[in-house]
Nucleic acid binder design. Structure first.
Lengths: 146, 146
DNA sequence: GTTGGTGCAAATAGTTTGCACAGTT
DNA sequence: AACTGTGCAAACTATTTGCACCAAC
């Protein structure tokens, strides 16, 4: 997700209006590395706009996704999470505490990915999601099993 | 997913009963490389057991997942898909026709994955999902854009 | 006979939409 | 003024559960 000024320009180009709600949602997303769900973004937005609706949040997220400014993550079977970082990178999802953290991937490796899967030569790949699922250190220690 | 005889043994060990419905679902899954959804499996099962319920299919899928005989794929935001192949491998999901195909990955590369993400050393990784999302050759040609 | 399974129907929850009014341009 | 965005409420859909009866063991 790019600078707010850039987002504003993109909204204008697309004939979309700049509303306080949208701006707030953009600001909220920009600094959030926690991969929030729509619901979580809605609750944070409520603190700024006590009368904002979930619908507005939802539609804004759709808009930002269509503009390619955020990406949706489908790791958590229970809900979609949103990520302001659109460059391909990996994620670790903890099945216990549901936390979702970035896994850095150096550009060289990212570039190598396509080579690992020669079959995708025929496909038009829009994005790649690499998800590791399991238990984070905290949750692993909580459940010592036996 | 292993041989049916092996599955039967595992059911017994776990104190689970061998019912015709379960056996049929296992057979259906075993030969299916299309990554069906629960609904699709249900419809195939209906042809064998005209009175089978979605609930039974659903619960059997849960059981097989708990036994580690199948894995759930979270690529399609609209529904969960099931895969009888539990070894780590990648998938390509077509956003247009919703097809989901396997991307082979040689064992060496699979093994390398962990090295690409040093951060996961602290995590207990249960499984890895690599998803490439975009358009398959057919759908790409259908939408020539401009 | 005991225990777990099946199937029906209803509940749950995340997501999506229709529409009237309000705000941006 | 024109047109898009907002917010409410309702619809939708995949998923999950409670429970009475049935079947495997």
């Amino acid at each position: 997700m790019r600078e707010i000024t850039h987002l504003v320009a993109r909204f204008r180009e697309a004939g979309l209006k700049i509303t306080p709600q949208r701006l707030s949602i953009c600001h909220l997303l920009k600094d959030d590395r926690t991969h929030p769900s729509a619901e979580e973004i809605y609750h944070k937005a409520l603190e700024i706009h006590p009368s904002i609706s979930f619908t507005t949040v939802y539609k804004t997220l759709q808009t930002l996704r269509e503009l390619g400014e955020i990406q949706e993550l489908n790791v958590d079977p229970e809900r979609v999470h949103y990520d302001p970082e659109v460059r391909d990178h990996a994620h670790f999802f903890c099945q216990s505490c549901k936390s979702l953290v970035d896994l850095e991937m150096d550009p060289l490796n990212a570039w190598m990915m396509a080579d690992l899967f020669p079959q995708v030569e025929d496909m038009e790949v829009h994005h790649t999601q690499i998800h590791m699922v399991g238990l984070c250190p905290k949750c692993r220690d909580k459940k010592p099993e036996a």
